[in-house]
Design a protein around this nucleic acid. Structure first.
Length: 210
DNA sequence: CTCCCGATAT
DNA sequence: ATATCAGGAG
């Protein structure tokens, strides 16, 4: 029961971005969790630059505890918000080590309890890490979904709810990645490339960018 | 709502 | 100089 508009958006995005996967580098789900926490208000490229070195030593929660908050804080300083991120990641490592046998939980509710893990990060772990239906809404998805008139919700959670109603669950995570690519390369926050946009007829930019 | 915060683009 | 970047907590 996918609508005509939704179908066109999904089809065009698939043509534009055939490969729908995260650009964050990681070797296991714990590293994915670390990378996503680090990615707040930073770019994937900056995060990968940091984790290239960090993940040589950090493969599981214990490794982060061995490293300590101060050294972690130094290694991630270039990302910004580094004090909060370091403190939260150490707490996460303690909780996972003590209460989850060092494993990352696969449920949205359990993930949400972790410090520094909100709705967007929890959805990414569930969807990308555990391959379960989820529709994370970050700054790009939020902006693009509203500009395309797919949602008028005022919060990322509201936009996620609307997108889940519009698209079938088996398409959510790929669409999530493609909407991010579309937001980064074409429907940018500043100076969007409207000349190459496949969806001019759907654009709600003036109405949505309040 | 403000704060956290460095790197990059405009 | 200002806006933005795979947000979340108080």
């Amino acid at each position: 029961m996918t609508g005509k508009k939704a179908h066109k958006i999904a089809a065009e995005l698939e043509k534009l971005f055939p490969v729908a996967k995260t650009e964050l580098n990681f070797q296991n789900i714990f590293q994915l969790l670390v990378a996503v926490v680090l990615s707040a208000q930073s770019t994937d490229r900056q995060v990968n630059k940091v984790t290239e070195k960090l993940f040589l030593f950090v493969k599981e929660p214990r490794d982060l505890l061995d490293m300590g908050e101060e050294e972690l804080s130094r290694q991630i300083r270039s990302l910004g918000l580094y004090r909060n991120k370091a403190r939260n990641l150490i707490k996460i490592a303690e909780i996972l080590d003590r209460e989850y046998h060092g494993q990352v939980p696969d449920s949205f509710a359990e993930l949400l309890k972790l410090p520094g893990v909100g709705p967007k990060t929890a959805e990414v772990i569930v969807g990308v890490g555990f391959n379960k239906p989820s529709f994370p809404v970050d700054t790009h998805v939020f902006r693009v979904a509203r500009r395309l008139g797919l949602s008028k919700a005022r919060t990322p959670e509201g936009v996620s709810f609307d997108l889940k109603k519009i698209f079938p669950p088996n398409s959510w995570i790929d669409l999530h990645h493609r909407l991010i690519f579309f937001g980064r390369r074409i429907c940018k926050a500043q100076k969007p490339s409207c000349n190459i946009c496949p969806f001019p007829e759907f654009c709600q930019k003036e109405e949505s960018d309040v």
